[in-house]
């Protein structure tokens, strides 16, 4: 097993290609001994980040691309996902847990990523997300 897996992939904005990428990152994490809980968190966060890139970033235009860079080792997983969109300001996304927003069907993806990842950050433009998951097994 390599000490670190590093990949850079460019995909078209389709859910099928996103799923394939997700599966590759999950497999890399499993190879490095991440727990089922960590894998659950990773799958959920990848799904949220990639579907945001497809839907909001690239407006579901399959001709537009998403670039994914990931590093997986036994300590941590770092994933960068860049779309071709104009970006957004994550601070301006309404808090979906506020009573007034509870019945809104949108805006929970970022909340879930923040809950399940150790780090969620965006570049200044808001079209590149960086998520980090630390291996919880190492803290036990």
């Amino acid at each position: 097993m390599p000490a670190q897996i590093y990949q850079e992939i460019e995909i078209h904005s389709t859910y099928a290609q996103a799923k394939k990428t997700e599966d590759g990152i999950i497999a890399a994490a499993q190879t490095h001994g991440y727990s089922d809980e960590d894998i659950f968190a990773l799958r959920l966060s990848l799904e949220e980040a990639l579907s945001n890139a497809i839907r909001h970033g690239n407006k579901q235009d399959p001709k537009k691309t998403i670039t994914i860079r990931y590093y997986v080792n036994k300590d941590r997983i770092d994933i960068y996902i860049a779309d071709e969109g104009t970006g957004f300001d994550p601070v301006k996304v309404p808090d979906p847990t506020m009573a007034d927003n509870l019945e809104s069907p949108h805006g929970r993806g970022i909340l879930l990523m923040r809950a399940y990842m150790n780090l969620v950050e965006y570049n200044d433009t808001g079209n590149v997300i960086h998520i980090t998951k630390l291996n919880a097994e190492l803290d036990k």
């Binding site: 959920l44 929970r108 879930l112």
Partner: peptide, 16 residues
Amino acid sequence: RHLSSSALGTLIRLNK
């Protein structure tokens, strides 16, 4: 075993 925020959005719309 797995749900996304998009699935939650669908449940909210359905509930409405």
